[in-house]
Design a protein around this nucleic acid. Structure first.
Lengths: 189, 189
DNA sequence: TCCATCTTTGAGTGTACGCTACATTTCATC
DNA sequence: GATGAAATGTAGCGTACACTCAAAGATGGA
């Protein structure tokens, strides 16, 4: 499937339409008709390239989950402030993808154990990364304590991100900055 | 509508069935047939008492949201620890309803501005309540600073709650306890 | 007991959905 | 330009859903 140039382009138009619909209308608004209309493609073409509607949705969602992770190259070197900053940027600048991610994690993850598992796994990877940064920040910490702090910090960031997505006037960056030790009450941009 | 005794009883059977379905099958499993079967009622009876399926679902969720707040009579007296405890209890003990609440707040709020507004409003009321508690805990705080801390605290609780709902092994209460100043590292139950 | 009013029933309506069948057109290769 | 594979558009299938309606039954004040 999708061996020729046009087929590949069509596939991308479909994914793009699906992504857009997911972020703007939510998972309930993603009907086959909506996708094919948005992509200017017939239903037959769709099923020539994807096995089911879910398959296209999953593809988009998979990309969204991966996009949460900040700059994979920086593993083991970035500071807490870097990680927090990357998370905030993801939530505010890439808000359509962030919306999809949260909608998926909450909307489907809470009922579908398979999705819940995926979300939890990627969450744990992020916790490890934050815990490492905590240890670098304060080497006297026990590994357990670092993990605990990472867990709370990520939970806070997720909650703040949720507020930001629901309320456009919410200044997520300012609040998030307060989570980083040593950065308290600084007003620098 | 529902002026006679039987009508009132039917209404309650329907709400009860809806509540049960919401918590056991999730919002997607709540079909009219499921509700009316579960309540042993014809579709016509349902529409004699409710204007739409959404109306019944909303009623159940509204009741659930009210249950989040600990003892509304105690406004202005409960401590931070009380408030945190009530939130944790809601998330862990009433987890089916908490699931629905989060699913609705996030799943719908992210796409429907009207719902987003409702969620933000009820969130702000809770923030005020937490801010008051912060001020009582530490009267030297400015109102602004108290609100800021309340905001972050609630975000953290929401995030931790999400983790708890996604991952059954997650100990939300232990993590939440660390958010309350002065409670650090205590292990008392 | 009567009877106006409230309540229940469930077959039926319209609609939206995911998906398929298939005839037609476009594409890459020779 | 002939060929076969790939890609496309459309009409429509079956299903599931929320919701309606007319007729029958239950209720309770007089």
């Amino acid at each position: 499937m999708a061996r020729y140039r046009v087929g590949i382009e069509t596939r991308e138009r479909i994914l793009s339409a699906t992504r857009r619909l997911l972020s703007e209308v939510g998972i309930e608004g993603v009907t086959l008709k909506a996708i094919t209309d948005q992509a200017s493609v017939g239903a037959g073409s769709f099923y020539n390239l994807f096995g089911s509607k879910e398959e296209a949705v999953f593809e988009v969602v998979r990309e969204a989950i991966e996009a949460v992770d900040p700059d994979p190259e920086g593993v083991g070197t970035d500071t807490l402030a870097d990680l927090v900053d990357a998370f905030v940027t993801f939530m505010t600048d890439s808000s359509p993808i962030a919306r999809i991610y949260l909608q998926l994690a909450v909307g489907r993850g809470l009922t579908d154990p398979a999705i819940a598992h995926r979300v939890v796994r990627s969450h744990q990877r992020r916790v490890e990364r934050f815990a490492d940064a905590w240890l670098r920040e304060d080497p006297s910490l026990s590994e357990q304590e670092a993990t605990r702090r990472a867990e709370v910090m990520l939970a806070s960031l997720t909650g703040l991100g949720l507020s930001a997505l629901l309320d456009e006037t919410f200044d997520m960056r300012a609040h998030a900055r307060e989570l980083v030790p040593g950065a308290r009450s600084t007003t620098e941009g």
